[in-house]
Design a protein around this nucleic acid. Structure first.
Lengths: 218, 218
DNA sequence: AGTAACATACTACTCGGAATGTTGGACCGT
DNA sequence: ACGGTCCAACATTCCGAGTAGTATGTTACT
C-alpha cells in the first residue's frame, strides 16, 4: 500500500520543456521494434538494450519495469493515431468523405508507425488479467479509455452521417467495430518493403479506406 | 539433423477411426482456454494440466512440446472455419448473398469457438521468427498455407462476383484483407455473456456480415 | 507381463529486477 | 583557473523465482 502510484515511469506526467536527451524516446522506439519482432514476452530487456547498443542499466534507469515500457509504447501508438485523425474531424466536408479521409489517415499511421501499432495489438486485455498491482491495472484502464476515445471519433462521424442521410448504417456499434478491425488488421499483413515508394503506400491506404467505407457491393 | 520430422505430435498424421480416448482433444481444448486467458507465453504447461485436473505428465504424454499444442490448436481453429464455410461455396445463390452467408458463418465460428480463434490471433508470424528447429518452421509454413487457402475461398467469391457484375471491388486483395480483418477482429471485442441467447448471437453475426459486405454507404 | 496413460520428482536455464560500481559533466567556492 | 563534489546516466554483477522439458515411478487394463 505504500507504493506511490503516480510514478513518472508509469504515468509519464512530467513533460519537460527541454528535449532533454531523448534517451527515453529511443528506448521506447527500440522496445517497439523488439515487441514487434519477438512478441511482448519473448522480447527481453537485454534485447531492447542490445538494439540501443547499451545494457539493461540504461533501460531500468528510465523505466521501472518492462510493463512500464509497454505502457509507454501503447501511449505513443495511440498518440500517433490521434495526431493524424483529430485534425480531420473539424473538416467541413461530407460525412462520407470525412470518414474515408479518417480511414485513410489511420491506414497511413498503421504503416508509418508499424512497430508501435503491431506491439500493442492484442495485448491489453490479456495484460489486464495478468497484472498484479493495482497501479498497473489503473494505467491499463486508462489506456483502454484512450482507445475507446479514439474509436468514438469514428462513431461520431458515423452518427452524423446517418443523421444527414449520407450513410446507411443499421448498427453503429457493429459498423465501427468492423471499420476498426479492417483498418487495424493492416498491421497483420502489411510488410515494409524498402523499395516501395511513398505513392505506393498512399495508394494502398487509399484502397483500404475505400474498401472499408464502401464495402464490396456496387 | 537426426530428429525425425514426421512426428505425430507435430504433424498429427494419424487420425484413428476410433474415438480413442479423446484425452488429446481435451488437452487441446484446455490449452485453447489457457492461451485465450493468459496468452501463449504466460500460459504454462501446469496451467493447462490444472484445467484438466491433471499434471504435466499427461500433457507431455500426448504432446512433445508446448509449441506442438499451439500447432494443434491452430489446426483445430482453422478446421472449424473450413467446416463452417466450405459447404457454402457450392451454393447456387448470387455472389453477394453467398459472400454474406460466408461472412455470417465465419462470424458464428469466431463466437462459437472463441478460445481457439483468440489463441491463434497474431501468433504465427511472431512464432516463425522465434522457432528454432526446421521441423517447427515447416509446420508453421503449413499452417500459414492453411490460412491462405481459407482466405482464398473469399477471394474466389469476390472474383466471381466482380465477373458477374454483382460486386464492385477495385482491388480484390485489399478487399479480402479488409473483410477478414473486420471479421477476425470480432474475437478482440466479443465477450461471451451467458445470458445472451442463440438468437442474439446470430443477430450479431448477421449484422457484422452485413457491415463488412455492404460497408457504410447508402 | 507388457504397455498405455498417466503422476511425481527433478533439473537446467532463462530472464526480470535489484544492488552496486563507474564516469563524465555541471556547478560550486576560493 | 582549479580542485572538489554531487548527481544523472549509464554499465556490471548478481540472484532468485518461475518454467519447459526430462527421468522415473505407478497403475490399470489387456
Amino acid at each position: 500500500m505504500d507504493e506511490h502510484i503516480d510514478d513518472d515511469t508509469l504515468t509519464d506526467a512530467t513533460e519537460g520543456a527541454a528535449p532533454k536527451h531523448d534517451s527515453r524516446r529511443e528506448i521506447i522506439e527500440a522496445a517497439a521494434q523488439c515487441f514487434m519482432l519477438k512478441g511482448l514476452d519473448k522480447a527481453t530487456m537485454d534485447d531492447i538494450a542490445d538494439v540501443l547498443g547499451a545494457t539493461k542499466g540504461r533501460v531500468y534507469h528510465h523505466f521501472r519495469s518492462k510493463n512500464a515500457i509497454y505502457f509507454a509504447v501503447y501511449r505513443q501508438a495511440m498518440q500517433y493515431c490521434f495526431d493524424a485523425v483529430t485534425p480531420l474531424i473539424s473538416l467541413n466536408t461530407s460525412s462520407i468523405s470525412k470518414l474515408e479521409l479518417m480511414a485513410h489517415a489511420h491506414a497511413r499511421v498503421m504503416m508509418d508507425t508499424l512497430p508501435y501499432q503491431r506491439s500493442i495489438r492484442l495485448g491489453v486485455e490479456v495484460y489486464l488479467r495478468g497484472s498484479t498491482t493495482e497501479a498497473e491495472r489503473a494505467v491499463l484502464r486508462e489506456l483502454i479509455t484512450l482507445r475507446n476515445d479514439y474509436e468514438n471519433l469514428y462513431r461520431e462521424v458515423l452518427r452524423a452521417g446517418v443523421a444527414q442521410g449520407e450513410l446507411d448504417v443499421p448498427n453503429i456499434e457493429i459498423a465501427s467495430r468492423a471499420l476498426m478491425g479492417a483498418l487495424n488488421g493492416l498491421v497483420d499483413w502489411y510488410r515494409i518493403r524498402p523499395d516501395q515508394s511513398e505513392g505506393e503506400r498512399d495508394a494502398l491506404a487509399r484502397a483500404l479506406a475505400h474498401a472499408v467505407v464502401h464495402g464490396t457491393t456496387a
